[in-house]
Amino acid sequence: MNKALFFMNLKSRYKIWIVFAVIMAFYKLTIITMYDPDDIAAIDELMRMFPDELLQAISFVIFDATLTGFIGGYYYGFIIILFPMIFTIILSFGLVGKYVDDGSMAYLLATPHKRKRIITTQAVFLLAAIFTLLSFNALFGIIVMSAMFPGELDIGKYLLLNLGAFILFFAVSGITFFFSSAFSESRQSLGFAIAVPVGFFVLDMLAGVGDTFEFLRFFTIFTLYDNAKLFPLENIVRLHYLILVMIGTLFYLAGIVVFSKKSLTL
């Protein structure tokens, strides 16, 4: 870890963090406001206006009639994937791939620090940014829900939803970080960092549509974040989270090792 570099990152990226934090909070507020404990059927009716396949694809289905089940479906099915994914792609490319592509990486490496230290700092920063983004979002939800519906939120389950989201993005960001670090040209570093998670995302949506494409869920890591298994809690969730942690660790380490050894045309 290098403090100077970490703070340089912070200074140049805090704005995008705020933008995503605000957008995600806005959506969360909207969805919480839609919850009506006395008339969950009304929402269900509203949702029936949309084709069933679409709702299935974007996991826009509630798990049970409780507040936790409600936002677990309507927020943690789609929005918690979409926005952090865009954030992760932008940031992981911006922290490494972009600097390599435009040559400014030379000014990070032409300093008395090992390459490994520089790249590890970028990895730590990326993870810290994602962790704080999701933590802020989780905390915001707790505050809003306990104000609007005191006592209705199952905090344990809610935290599990958020923990799962962070673990998922630990894995996703590991993958985007790896591509950002392993390739030298933005065509590839950014290309793969977009294509792979978006590809997984699309496969996950297709797998949700119906039996025809159900087998696709074995080809995407997003199915490992399966919140239906939290209502009620199943043991397999532990295994899923463990696999995601392993994927993330592997790709982060691979990114650091490859970057520390490779030739960089700076």
């Binding site: 340089m8 140049s12 600097y99 435009d102 040559g103 400014s104 030379a106 000014y107 032409a110 700076l266």
Partner: peptide, 8 residues
């Protein structure tokens, strides 16, 4: 560097 790039 020959081709200088800064943090713009």
């Amino acid at each position: 560097a020959g081709e200088i790039a800064f943090f713009d």
